[in-house]
Design a protein around this nucleic acid. Sequence first.
DNA 1: CGAAATTTGCAACATTATAACATTAGCAAA
DNA 2: TTTGCTAATGTTATAATGTTGCAAATTTCG
Lengths: 164, 164
Amino acid sequence: MSPSALPYRPHNHEACVAQALADARTICQQHSARLTPTRERVLELIWQSHKPLGAYDVLAVLAEDGHNAAPPTVYRALDFLQQHGLVHRIASLNAFIGCTHAGEAHNGMFLICRACHNVLELTAPGVSSAVSRAAAAESFQPDDVTIEVAGYCPRCVSEPAHDG
Amino acid sequence: MSPSALPYRPHNHEACVAQALADARTICQQHSARLTPTRERVLELIWQSHKPLGAYDVLAVLAEDGHNAAPPTVYRALDFLQQHGLVHRIASLNAFIGCTHAGEAHNGMFLICRACHNVLELTAPGVSSAVSRAAAAESFQPDDVTIEVAGYCPRCVSEPAHDG
DNA sequence: CGAAATTTGCAACATTATAACATTAGCAAA
DNA sequence: TTTGCTAATGTTATAATGTTGCAAATTTCG
């Protein structure tokens, strides 16, 4: 583990985006799914930062692009991207974020900073197994697990309101 | 642990509600908070079943009551009830449910049945500690933890679409 | 009582998401 | 190349959820 996880430290974010898009193309090809221009553009926008983006934020940028899009366009693209594991929806924020574990089987756990709004996606096997055990103890069959932790990231704990 | 947790088996639900209201009165008194008629009525409505209820569902019943309420009335009552730990908001459903651990310090984990829509709230210490450890490993300071598990409850696994 | 604080009523508005239906693009078989 | 099918997109409208701001009423407490 790095001293500071990706979203919290300076990095070449264009490389993040480029990698995400490349991965997406590979994954869609494997799934025989079509990463159309709109879908690819939406994915790129979601990846603009490590902060989640609302559907209407995406819509606004598409409008700036000159793309005369309506809400269904965005929601459909986001649904597609979610189905193929390329983005996640953060239920507690009504917003979307690029998946940093695309292609890997994973149960995301999200650390959401209340100050800088960056989100770190973790794969936490200990958490997943604890959840599974708790569900099994109630004979409950889990299908989809949402784990979202709001709080303060390492940078913002010490010094408030990072925007990086 | 009972063979089948409360929401999933027949029980005298009026007793649930009565107990919840009695607990609420006690807790509010301890907090020097005012459980006004509107707030109490909203709490009672939320407790009508073990299924989460949307704010606008509550609003509709208030309207049937003859209470000429607007959305802010309901949201304010729900905010109050949340602040005092009497109800929880289920982020993945935009809906609210009565807290079955009112008064106890607890980190709720919710098992949400996709078939019958009943929700079981658990206190899962193993899960909480695993989440804390995972957050600590990233030097993240958790403030509020959301754990929601959608799936199928014991009854609906065997026989679909229970409504009980 | 009377001032201060809390709670409520009310209107307007903001945000998020979906329904329904028409149209177009991609692609393969006749 | 046309035909026909399916997936994808466009378009309009609307549903569902949540908030802001201010004034009036109520409660609390000195």
